[in-house]
Amino acid sequence: MTWVFDHLGLLGGLTGTHVYLALVPLVVGLVLAIPLGWLASRSRPARAVLLSVSGLLYTIPSLALIVVLPGIIGTKILDSVNVIIPLTIYTVALLVRSIADALTSVPATVVAAATAIGYRPLRRFASVEFPLAVPVVIAGLRVAAVSNISLVSIGALIGISGYGVLFTDGFQLGFMTEIVVGVVATLLLALVADALLLLIGRLLTPWTRAGR
């Protein structure tokens, strides 16, 4: 405990980096996954291709992706982009399926009613179909957020900051406290992110609690 109080500054900085490295992929991933998920919900061939590609990408171990990236896109090995891109890929891979499934499960009668009222497709998607898919999207985001927060630590293996630094340092110095603090901090951060997303989901979908 005293170690924690002596190193509040360090922990604060690491928390900032860690949140940044986990959050950016989450937001970028969501923005990319919405059109892709929509496409997958619209056409069978697109769905087959998108889902198998995302399944394949999800299969690639994170460390492998992180260390290979500099060679492929020409970034420096210590660039935080090397962590952000793989995590974005995982987030997209995870969300495309959720969003596609959520959109497919919007009742056809609701879509037909919206069309009959006079919504054009884009507007209808934004004001009817996507809002109804929000609960599933939030569920997907929660999984992605927790897994991103846990994966950011891997970056420490190639020298990218975040809570992972506590593990590599602790290991090299044989200092358990530091490792345990890192694990606890990661869990707390995951818990907070999960709770926040749950709350956002509730605020966005008041109708899911009506009449229950």
């Binding site: 927790v146 846990s150 630590s153 420490a156 809570y163 992972g164 990661t186 818990l191």
Partner: peptide, 8 residues
């Protein structure tokens, strides 16, 4: 699932 692998 939230446990960081490297930490474990």
């Amino acid at each position: 699932r939230a446990l960081p692998t490297l930490g474990v």
